[in-house]
Amino acid sequence: MLEHRVKSWVELQELLFEGSWNEALHRFRPTLAFRGMPDASMDLATGLNRRGGDYSRQEHVMLRAFRKYARGTAYPCGSVWDWLALAQHHGLPTRLLDWTFSPYVALHFLSENLELYGTDGVVWSVDYRETNRLLPRPLKVQLRQEGADVFSAEMLEEVAPRLRAFDQLTRRSFVLFFEPPSLDERIVNQFALFSVMNAPSSRLDTFLEKQERGVRRIIVPAKLKREVRDKLDQANITERVLFPGLDGLSRWLRRYYNPKPPGPPEGLPPGGSRNED
């Protein structure tokens, strides 16, 4: 795993989009998943991991109860993977972890919390083509047959219609990324995808630390966060877009009109301007 500490917005862009060129397609089509976090010391614990103890043993019990009581809602769910995505989306502790195809969405979650502007943030970047190399054969075959790099709920159901079957595909730890169904505008606008490992108690950060290729931590220093946040606002990467509805609108307004964090943005003297003309 590589780690790089950036010094400027320009360097950050270069790293986020590095390796985007796909020679086979002759297009800039990266195979990267991103996760932005406001504190670089945060780990990649899932909802189940954070509960600790034997909580992960209750995974099937909670999911069964969720399916029972959530039936009749507006969300059409067929497979266990649809239900797992829906449960994660609404805050149930699961083995899933939220990621995005968009580096700018990742930067939003890195810079949204104004209370952590004095803390370095981090963007995790994972090339899922590399993690796919460690998948068990049935999953590799499924990707090859579909001509895909990430899974859908339907693809996973064909190989493992139940979580127990998924966990028993191999004894070796692996991670895969799957794109959830478009349950609502939030998932669509956040360009969301989930990571999932083959055991409810597995730790993704422990797994990724051992990977020599395709995994990078980009550290965004605290003094650069203001510039990142302001430029994302200008690009319309805001709570209003990523969380459609009145809740997202209120989150955006509360942050946008909050008094600015102390100190000038990186590279700009107090009262100064980058344009000297």
Rank of each mutant, 00 (worst) to 15 (best):
I218E: 01
R144M: 13
F177Y: 14
V220S: 12
V175E: 03
E154R: 08
E185C: 02
F194P: 05
S173D: 15
K140S: 09
D184W: 15
E146P: 15
F177E: 12
L208Q: 13
S152W: 04
F174A: 02
R171I: 14
L139K: 11
P180W: 02
S182F: 01
K210N: 04
V215C: 10
M197K: 07
Q211L: 15
L169T: 01
L183Q: 08
D184K: 00
D149C: 09
M155Y: 14
A148C: 08
V175M: 14
R137S: 04
R213Y: 08
R186M: 09
E146N: 11
A222F: 09
R216E: 15
G214H: 09
E185A: 06
T170A: 15
E212K: 15
F207D: 00
A222I: 11
L193T: 01
R213F: 10
F194S: 00
L156N: 14
S173L: 09
F178D: 06
F207T: 13
E158Y: 03
F207V: 07
R172H: 08
V150T: 13
D205E: 06
T170L: 04
F207Y: 05
I218R: 07
L204F: 02
T206C: 05
A153L: 05
F166T: 11
D184M: 05
I219H: 05
L163W: 15
K140D: 03
F174L: 06
P180T: 07
L143K: 00
I219F: 06
Q211A: 14
Q145T: 01
S201Q: 14
S182P: 07
V215E: 08
R171T: 10
L193F: 03
R217I: 13
V220C: 10
Q190T: 03
A192W: 02
V215L: 06
R213V: 13
N189K: 12
L193N: 05
L193R: 02
S195I: 00
V141D: 11
P221V: 10
F194N: 00
I187L: 14
E179K: 07
L143I: 04
F191W: 03
G214F: 09
R164Y: 05
F177C: 01
A222T: 09
E212T: 07
A199Y: 01
S173N: 09
E209M: 07
E154V: 10
S182W: 03
Q168A: 01
S201W: 09
L208F: 15
F194Y: 13
L204Q: 03
I187H: 12
T170E: 10
R171N: 15
F166V: 00
L163T: 15
L169I: 08
L139G: 13
E212V: 09
V159D: 15
I218D: 00
K223S: 03
N198Y: 08
A160N: 14
E154H: 10
P181G: 03
G147I: 02
K140R: 13
T206I: 13
G147W: 07
L204P: 11
